[in-house]
Design a protein around this nucleic acid. Structure first.
Length: 332
DNA sequence: AACTGGCGCAACCGCCCACCA
DNA sequence: ATGGTGGGCGGTTGCGCCAGT
C-alpha cells in the first residue's frame, strides 16, 4: 500500500517559526539535504508538519533568496509574465530565481494588481484576471489557449537554451532569461541562506537576552552540522556525501559565525567554499557535483536536443517583450 | 494616548498529480 | 492495477505594523 500519513494533526505546532526552529531545520538540511520532508519533524524533533517544514525552507530559508523591495525590472518581468502565464507563480518565479513564488504572489496581490487596477480602472479584471484564474480558463477560446501553449513552449525552449549555455547567459542582457538559479559567484551559494539566518539571529539576539543561553544546545547541534562537509543533492533519494562538499573551516565553529557583530560578509562567507567544479541544483539551490558527469558530458535527450536546436534557429529573441500584452506592456 | 482601518507578509489550506508499495 | 502518500502549487487567512483620525 501507500506510505504512512505525513503527520498526524495532533500536537503539530502552527504559526510563525521561531529562530530556534529555523536553526534546527537548517541544521538538519545541511546534514541531510532538502527532501524526504516527512522524516524532518521526527528526526529533528520539530513539532511541525512536514509540509510546513518544506514551505519554511523553500520560502524563507533556502539559499539564494532575495528579500525586500522589488526592482522596477523585476516588476516589469512579473507583469509581463503574469500576462503571459497567468497566476502560475511557480513558473513566474523560475524567471526570477532569487524570488519565491510566494513572494511574487504576495507582491502581485498587494502591489501590482492595485497598480494595474489604478491604471486600467475597472477594465483591469477583464485584462488581467480574465487570463489568469483557473475558473475562467475554461472560457478560453481555442486561439487564446493555443497562444498560451505556444508561449509556454517558446519559453521552455528559451529556458533550455539559456540553461545549456550558462557561460554566455550570465553576461547576456536578456531580461527574461529563465535562469533556474541565479548565477553564483564562486562559492557563496550557501551564504545567502546563512545570511538570512544571520540577519534573523541578530534580530533575535537583540530582542531576546536569553537567546545566547538558549542557543547553546542548538549551536552545538548546528555546529556539528555546519562542520559536516556533506551535502546531499536534490530530493535526497540519491545521496552520497561526496556529491558536494562545503568547507566550514572556522575554528570557532558555528557560534562565532552567528555571533553578534559577526554577520556574514563576502569575506567570511568564503569559508563555505564549494570544492571543485559545481553544478547547480535548481530545486534546492545548493551547489553540488554529480560524480562522473562532467559538464561537457551532459547527455541531451531527444527532446532537449530538439528544443535546443529549435531555439537556436528561432529568431524570436525579442518576441517575448514585444508581444502585445495589452496595456501592461506600456505600464511603465 | 487610544482607536481604527489598511497594508504587507508569513503561513496555512486544499487540491492535484506523480510516484510508491 | 490500485490505493494512498509526498510534494508542488495557487488561493486564502491571520497577524503584526503603521499611519491617520
Amino acid at each position: 500500500m501507500g506510505r504512512p500519513p505525513c503527520c498526524d494533526k495532533t500536537g503539530v505546532k502552527k504559526g510563525p517559526w521561531t529562530p530556534e526552529e529555523d536553526i534546527i531545520l537548517v541544521s538538519y538540511i545541511q546534514q541531510h539535504g532538502p527532501g524526504n520532508w516527512r522524516a524532518v519533524p521526527s528526526n529533528t524533533g520539530l513539532l511541525r508538519c512536514s509540509k510546513s517544514c518544506r514551505l519554511r525552507w523553500t520560502n524563507y530559508l533556502r539559499p539564494g533568496i532575495k528579500r525586500g523591495n522589488f526592482t522596477e525590472h523585476e516588476e516589469k518581468m512579473i507583469i509581463h509574465l503574469q500576462a503571459l502565464l497567468g497566476n502560475r507563480w511557480a513558473a513566474i518565479a523560475s524567471y526570477l530565481p532569487q524570488r519565491t513564488d510566494n513572494d511574487i504572489k504576495n507582491y502581485w496581490n498587494t502591489h501590482l494588481r492595485k497598480k494595474l487596477k489604478k491604471l486600467h480602472g475597472e477594465d483591469e479584471n477583464t485584462i488581467q484576471e480574465g487570463s489568469t484564474s483557473s475558473s475562467s480558463q475554461s472560457n478560453f477560446s481555442k486561439g487564446q489557449w493555443e497562444r498560451r501553449l505556444q508561449t509556454d513552449i517558446h519559453m521552455a525552449k528559451k529556458a533550455l537554451c539559456e540553461a545549456l549555455s550558462l557561460d554566455k547567459s550570465n553576461s547576456q542582457a536578456d531580461p527574461i532569461s529563465p535562469i533556474p538559479v541565479q548565477p553564483v559567484q564562486g562559492s557563496s551559494s550557501y551564504a545567502s541562506s546563512a545570511e538570512n539566518i544571520s540577519k534573523l539571529l541578530q534580530n533575535w539576539m537583540k530582542n531576546s537576552p536569553k537567546s545566547s543561553q538558549l542557543s547553546r544546545s542548538d549551536s552545538e547541534n548546528t555546529q556539528s552540522s555546519f562542520n559536516n562537509p556533506s551535502i546531499r543533492s536534490g530530493s535526497g533519494s540519491s545521496s552520497s556525501p561526496s556529491e558536494g562538499t562545503i568547507s566550514a573551516t572556522t575554528p570557532e565553529g558555528f557560534d562565532s559565525l552567528f555571533s553578534e557583530g559577526n554577520a556574514f560578509t563576502p569575506e567570511n562567507t568564503a569559508i563555505f567554499q564549494v570544492e571543485s567544479k559545481p553544478n547547480l541544483n535548481a530545486e534546492n539551490g545548493f551547489l553540488f557535483n554529480k560524480p562522473g558527469l562532467e559538464e561537457s558530458q551532459v547527455p541531451l535527450s531527444l527532446i532537449e536536443k530538439w528544443l535546443f536546436d529549435d531555439a537556436i534557429n528561432a529568431p524570436a529573441q525579442d518576441e517575448f517583450m514585444g508581444m502585445n500584452l495589452g496595456e501592461s506592456a506600456n505600464f511603465f
